[in-house]
């Protein structure tokens, strides 16, 4: 973002006027023209957020779809999807799950909660996986686990680094214990990639929680996070029930886990590509 942009004024809407969803749809304006920042609560002109979707008032990073993320990070036209059409090894007769999956596919235009493939970042080849919180909260079931495992296995074969953008509510409840097993399955593939001396960079984006935090997201040689990202294992409500008290607002934020020593660095979205490129370059993967 430019330092020289003129400061703009933003409308502040009283809570009583605001119905609580992200778009101010009840105002008489074209849809998506204005957005409410969930962090500073200002109403902002969508165009001011730029392609990176950062709140111009407070710097909050709006959630990106996997496509937006890939557009932000990969060199133009270099992303080649891998295992786009993978079929689940098992079907689950969980009530309404089939419908839920169909709806998620329709809404997001992708087949599952992670997109995997190969691309270039600043001219350097890398394997990349981007989770999509818009797809059933980015939850991890068999297909997500398999795609990430296959990506690590293929990257090991091709001697490439892996970059994963985590964005997930955790394990996919509807697939039950099989979702839990994905955490272990992926760990084997991460290990073999690591034993081959290859680099794995994990980027935590909003939200990174549950079984994803408790597996590959925390396994990176280098772990980065976007500012303000929710990072945690247990859900906030569960912790509050356990503690029988309210938690401070920044509990389980990227800043919180940085302070406690569990991640390497917080990187602003507009510096992320450059940071990743430097890391790749310093690992000699040109």
């Amino acid at each position: 973002m430019s330092l020289f942009k003129a400061k703009k004024k933003y409308i502040r809407i009283k809570p009583s006027d605001y119905m609580g969803d992200d778009t101010v749809s009840h105002l008489d304006v074209p849809e998506d023209m204005f957005k409410k920042c969930p962090h500073c609560k200002n109403i902002i002109y969508a165009k001011d957020m730029g392609d990176e979707k950062v709140c111009p008032c407070c710097g909050y990073n709006f959630r990106l779809s996997s496509k937006e993320r890939l557009d932000n990070i990969c060199d133009e036209g270099t992303f080649v999807p891998f295992n786009e059409e993978i079929e689940p090894k098992k079907t689950f007769d969980f009530p309404d799950y089939e419908k839920k999956l169909e709806k998620a596919k329709e809404n997001t235009g992708i087949n599952e909660a992670v997109v995997t493939g190969f691309s270039k970042i600043g001219g350097i080849d890398t394997a990349i996986a981007v989770m999509d919180a818009g797809f059933i909260m980015g939850s991890m079931g068999i297909v997500v686990g398999e795609k990430i495992t296959l990506l690590f296995e293929e990257a090991t074969k091709r001697k490439l680094p892996v970059i994963i953008f985590a964005a997930s509510g955790g394990a996919r409840m509807q697939e039950g214990i099989f979702s839990l097993m994905q955490m272990a399955k992926i760990s084997f593939a991460v290990r073999k990639h690591s034993e081959a001396g290859l680099l794995y960079v994990s980027v935590l984006t909003d939200p990174t929680t549950g079984g994803v935090t408790a597996s590959f997201a925390m396994d990176g040689d280098i772990i980065l996070a976007e500012p303000g990202t929710l990072v945690g294992f247990a859900g906030r409500r569960v912790i509050e029930q356990t503690m029988k008290s309210k938690l401070p607002k920044d509990f389980q934020s990227a800043e919180f886990v940085l302070e406690h020593g569990f991640i390497d660095k917080i990187v602003k979205r507009d510096e992320l590509k450059d940071t990743l490129w430097k890391i790749l370059k310093l690992h000699g993967t040109l």
Partner: peptide, 25 residues
Amino acid sequence: AYSGATAEERGQGSAIATNLLEMSG
């Protein structure tokens, strides 16, 4: 796994992740 505030502060997610990774080898 314990889901209190101290568990989060001490990296419950990271601890479990490390066990999975190390046990795999």
